[in-house]
Amino acid sequence: MADPSLYTYPSPLQGYENLEPLPNEFSDDGKSFANPPSKTKSESYNTFVSPITNDRRGGFDIHIYYLQTDNDETKFAHALWERIRREFPELRIYRVWDKPIGPHPLAMFEVNVFTPEQFGAFIPWLVINRGPLSALIHPNTDEPERDHTQRATWMGQPLPLTLKMFKKRQ
């Protein structure tokens, strides 16, 4: 995992300074805060926030891992791959690798999503349907090591990645 102190983080309130305080009233559920309505929806509903790519590379990669020496997991991974291809044909779905490749420590296949709408549909579906398999979800920016570590999200058991391929050669 990447050391968070290696990176800088802009304030989440950048562009929202000097606004009126938010109300302290609760919503009807009695637990969540009532938020004032916005005049417009966040642009993040339509495009990924910078620096995530919004081009043919895809905004997010999802790597779905399986233990290649376990016949049941191998069959499950292939069935999941086929189901994803049938249910989400608009996504980019790569071949199933039967061995570790790149920084990935186990056999896997990769799915790319291109829009927040696709992300919002596919990720909840994967939460329910991934079975025993782990999945790495990472954005695509110009910082691949950070994307695979500090910006990554895991479903299931996190796996140690081989990061040396991301190190710049001097």
Rank of each mutant, 00 (worst) to 15 (best):
Y7I: 11
L161K: 01
Q14A: 11
I123N: 04
Q170N: 13
Q157A: 08
G30A: 06
S50G: 01
P158L: 03
I128W: 02
A121N: 14
D28S: 15
A2S: 15
W97D: 11
S50N: 13
T115I: 11
P103A: 05
T162F: 07
T115A: 06
P21M: 07
S27Q: 14
Q170G: 10
N140S: 10
P116T: 10
I62A: 01
Y9W: 12
T47H: 08
R86Q: 15
P21W: 00
Q68Y: 12
T69Q: 08
H78I: 13
I93Y: 01
S5W: 06
E25F: 06
D29R: 12
M155A: 05
K31N: 00
N71I: 15
M108D: 03
P160W: 01
R92N: 10
I62G: 00
Y7V: 08
S42W: 10
T162R: 15
T149S: 12
Q157L: 05
M1V: 14
E110M: 09
G156Q: 14
E82F: 13
D3C: 08
P21I: 07
N18W: 05
H138L: 10
N140V: 07
T8N: 13
T8E: 13
T74G: 02
T162A: 11
K99R: 15
P21D: 02
F76I: 01
P105N: 01
G59L: 06
D70V: 14
I101P: 00
P12K: 12
F114Y: 13
I62F: 08
P4L: 06
D142T: 12
D55N: 15
F76A: 11
K39Y: 00
P23V: 07
S42V: 13
I64E: 01
P4D: 02
S32H: 15
Q68K: 11
Y16H: 15
R151F: 03
R92G: 08
D61Y: 09
S11Y: 04
F76K: 09
S44F: 13
R151I: 02
E143C: 04
A135R: 01
E87Q: 15
E20P: 13
R56F: 03
E20Y: 05
L91Y: 03
P89A: 02
E145K: 14
P37D: 08
A152H: 06
R57L: 12
G120W: 04
H138C: 15
L126D: 03
P10Y: 06
K41T: 12
D3T: 14
E87D: 13
I84N: 00
K31Y: 13
F88V: 11
G15E: 03
